[in-house]
Amino acid sequence: MTDPVLSVKNLSTQFFTRAGVVKAVDSVTFDLAKGEIMGLVGESGSGKTVTGFSLLGLVDAPGRIVEGSVKLNGTELTTLSQKDLRTRRGREISMIFQDPIATLNPMLTVGQQVRLAIDAHEKLSHRAADARATELLSQVGIPSASVRLRAYPHEFSGGMRQRVAIAIALLHRPSVIVADEPTTALDVSIQAQILFQMRDLAAETGTAMIWISHDLAVVSSLASKLAVMYAGRIVEQGPTATLLRDPRHPYTAGLIASLPATAKPGTPLTQIPGTTPSLLSLPPGCPFAPRCDRSTDRCEVKPQITLQESRGWRCFHPVEKNAEVLA
């Protein structure tokens, strides 16, 4: 196998707040190959978005990366200056956010915003930049793109706005795009369209993607591998098909069991009891233990990662194949 485009090792990001230290991301490790799509799944507040920001070096104070390494195309990012980091953002790695109305500037035309992103990395004449912007917008499925360049974000529908954001993220054909729930705010019908369009665009340009979502169903149709996050840690990761068929971590198993599609019609939906612990006061051992029906005294120690072929999990009592949860 070739070298991964993105290699993350032991990445930990913490926020130093007045109330205490928030361990938002804790020892996150994964590799991403060229053109690969990885799904990063977890509940709200599990650290998915902060992981994304950490990759781009965009963690705002009082947060910072306290440990670990992020290697993009062989370059270590965590030790780069903000200035060097900036020249890589947008060109080698970029990010799309959940709510396109909040990400685009309401007071600039779409064309101006695309042009700002072009200017950030290239010197193009006004006309060349316009041509580039038009080409890109039509590529992401915006009709009569050259006219729409002069329109403002509020003149677009939600789906079209997100397409503009996607076009900006794809502008310089980055090696990696972090997509932070980009379809969550959209209609279901538009969701699928954008999902598959992005998959195709990524395949065309060889861009690898990290698709952050709380929706296992969405991610599993798209990603070739999955990482399940819980309370700042990746508790299980591996190829999507394997993980869905044969989850090892009880949390993954619980997530799969609570998918509405897996429930028998007429029966109540399965849910995981309890709520996510506060990242301010995590239990010393496995953070999932208080909600887990398999936990024992052993779980008071932090479980290390267990590796098996292409997958890994952090649990002392992994679910065995075809165990009761899936039955």
Binding site: F53, T87, R89, A102, L108, A120, A165
Partner: peptide, 27 residues
């Protein structure tokens, strides 16, 4: 400066000067 607009501009690699002059000043 805390909004997604600025985060997104940064993620696209805009320089801080461009962010202040083109985005912030208008907003």
């Amino acid at each position: 400066m805390l909004t997604d607009t600025i985060k997104f501009a940064r993620a696209a690699g805009l320089s801080e000067t461009a962010i202040l002059r083109r985005h912030l000043l208008k907003l």
